[in-house]
Design a protein around this nucleic acid. Sequence first.
DNA 1: TTAAAATCTTACCATACATCAATGCAAATC
DNA 2: GATTTGCATTGATGTATGGTAAGATTTTAA
Lengths: 194, 194
Amino acid sequence: MEDSNSDLLFDFIAKTVDLSLSDKQSLLEKLTIEPYDKHTIIIPQGQVCKNLRFVVSGIYRVYRIENGKEITSYFNYESRNPFVASFVSLLTETPSQEVVECIVPGKLLSIKYTDWTSLYDISPTLNTYGRRMAELNYVLAMERIESLQYKSATDRYTSFMKLYPALLNLIPHHYIASYIGVTPESLSRIRKQS
Amino acid sequence: MEDSNSDLLFDFIAKTVDLSLSDKQSLLEKLTIEPYDKHTIIIPQGQVCKNLRFVVSGIYRVYRIENGKEITSYFNYESRNPFVASFVSLLTETPSQEVVECIVPGKLLSIKYTDWTSLYDISPTLNTYGRRMAELNYVLAMERIESLQYKSATDRYTSFMKLYPALLNLIPHHYIASYIGVTPESLSRIRKQS
DNA sequence: TTAAAATCTTACCATACATCAATGCAAATC
DNA sequence: GATTTGCATTGATGTATGGTAAGATTTTAA
């Protein structure tokens, strides 16, 4: 595969830990690149998620289906939150309750999760990185809980705007509505106010 | 310190990874035991959390103060969720937005977080355990988000009852109310229905 | 280019839960 | 034992958000 794509991933990891050349080499051997079109389902509901993916380009959405309605768990794109997976399914090896979908076409780097975890055994650095990644995901999830438990829908919308300003004009608003936990109609009213 | 207390911790860790004797030895050297009375504040708001603690006995509560009201993040006790800390503060080394308080008297094992993470460097097993712990916390946090985002207050109460049946008669109900994200009045009405 | 589908907005009404206030009860304190 | 304090409950009322439906607009597809 092309080095230029994997460098994005290496640079991202290198923000947290110092990757050795052999770490990069081991990773590189296991990576593949996957192009995705809009509306392609990457992980369907009920399937165990077996790969960890990394955004090279495009925007991706993770959502659940509850009473026939899609409820967005989060978005993945290059500059923020670039790891794409149904993490709960990946970590617990249970069928995914979440659907992972491409919403803006692009490319993902992909690695089998078994290959990824096998790197933990040969590289303490990558093992540490795995821990850091999990810790960071936990911190972000706690912030999300805080916002859902204490904040009004309007507050959550303004927070979203600060965190993901780039997304507003790139994706349908009802995706955002379900992310902040309101109906599209309510989001429309919130937007009207401000 | 007494071995009998630390065995509780070792056994708990051993459910996830195989601890060597030297792992236990290294841990043991760093552990202290702390007794706590009811209403003792273990971590006050605004202080950076520097220790990781483990429940030997008693019940502990982590909460935030929002608009003068206490909002419970979670409970810690022996059989479930035994690690006590303001994790976000611990992991990010920022002042804690959360207060950690003893609500039923008991004892905690305590280790300086810097000591804990220094064990990661000398023991791959403990490094792996740190990762697993973070991953598990993440999965639990995602379940919490799911419940706050999709479920009614009544649903959240019945879920709570399944998850923490032992707590109902041990702690004030308004703690539970703020955990499931409703007022004590609403919880009372929910309980009346069922 | 036109038709079809998806998206966004607005209006009206319904509902879950919050807020405020009063009361009873139980536990802690004197 | 009396008194205070905290907790649980109940009722009346308020408010934010949901549900439904219709129309306007944009995007997609034929």
